[in-house]
């Protein structure tokens, strides 16, 4: 079955989506709160406006005040929705081959990170504090030895669930035998070489001592 671009642009032929998730709703809670409060104030103003006796906008200072307020309210209104849309545009995708982090905004940013499962060495999850425990969100950190960095994903809902998901699919990936190569940290490679040279040196010394003992008849 060819899954190319089936669910998202860039999906590979043999790639199946395990799960997708976005950040916890708490990241946009302040904007939603302002939106709801603003709507409430707007409705109140609409109903009370006939009783307020607002003077006509003929004087220059009343026009300036009106324009400033109108511009500010319009900007704030659009900005709140832009933040909500940006929340939807950031998504994490876990597939049977890799983890994809899509980080984009409405117009100005379009970034995508992918981490093949064989690049992942270590996965950590964290959930600390009252809010994180109460609302069940936290952080996931993935260690990538080839780059020697931790990829940090914060405000992840139900971090336990995705932690287990990543560990499970990585194990399945290894069991399938599709790990064609293991990428080692260059420091690890150097350590292995040094250990192997030491062992060769010790073996040579042991042979020389054994020969000496033979020659001395011991």
């Amino acid at each position: 079955m060819d899954n190319s671009d089936k669910h998202f642009k860039g999906q590979l032929k043999d790639e199946k989506i395990i799960c997708t998730f976005r950040r916890h709703w708490i990241v946009i809670f302040p904007y939603l709160f302002v939106l709801v409060t603003g709507l409430f104030i707007f409705l109140l103003f609409v109903f009370l406006e006939p009783t307020l006796n607002i003077s006509p906008l003929t004087a220059w200072y009343s026009q300036l005040l009106f324009l400033t307020l109108f511009l500010g309210i319009t900007y704030t209104f659009h900005r709140i929705f832009v933040h909500v849309f940006n929340y939807y545009l950031n998504v994490f995708i876990i597939t049977n081959l890799r983890i994809v982090d899509i980080d984009r905004t409405l117009f100005l940013r379009d970034r995508r990170d992918t981490f093949n499962l064989d690049m992942i060495d270590d996965v950590k999850k964290g959930r600390e504090g009252i809010f994180q425990t109460l609302f069940n969100f936290g952080t996931l950190e993935i260690y990538l030895p080839s780059m020697n960095v931790y990829k940090r994903m914060s405000f992840i809902p139900a971090p336990n669930h995705y932690f287990r998901c990543i560990c499970r699919i990585r194990q399945e990936y290894i069991d399938r035998g599709t790990m064609k190569h293991v990428i080692l940290n260059p420091q690890h490679i150097q350590n292995i070489q040094e250990i192997s040279e030491e062992r060769d040196f010790e073996n040579e010394n042991a042979k020389i001592r054994a020969k000496k003992l033979d020659d001395e008849g011991l």
Partner: peptide, 12 residues
Amino acid sequence: QFRFDPSDYNLL
């Protein structure tokens, strides 16, 4: 471009 199945974790 992004046609994900809806779930509790990708809907607000």
